[in-house]
Amino acid sequence: MTDEAHPDLLSHYARSLGIEVSGFEDNVPVLRVSGIDAIEGRPDHFHGGATSGLMETAAYAALRMALSERGEEAQLKPINITVQFLAAAKKAPLFAKARITKLGRRSANVTVEAWQEDRERPRASAVMNVMIQRDAKA
């Protein structure tokens, strides 16, 4: 199982929402959440909050992978997120993958897309700024 090799990619929240690591593309995790009741907004569709929760988790997972590849440990804290809801996501598996546009000393900028059956037609996209605290242990 890919996610057992990287157990630190998912938070309590992500795991209890049913988010899983579905695979890796060039060492970037692709996350997935199934169309379970916990994600439902209006009948048979994703709640926007669940969609953005998946995208946020994909952003953190990509950053944790990138930092661990560099042999660095850091605490990640969200600064902000802007989500564009492009099309209603149906109650079916939803995928998300992040692209790190900047990985700086103190912050990172990450874009994320979420899709269902057709990757060329994303359901939502997000841009996120994340604080990176490399020294903070407390």
């Binding site: 938070s11 309590h12 929240y13 992500a14 929402l17 709640h47 926007g48 909050g49 669940a50 953005s52 929760g53 946020e56 988790t57 969200p78 997120i81 989500v83």
Partner: peptide, 12 residues
């Protein structure tokens, strides 16, 4: 609490 649930609550 994680940021995701806070986003969901504010959306709702």
């Amino acid at each position: 609490i994680a940021s995701g649930p806070i986003f969901s609550m504010l959306d709702m």
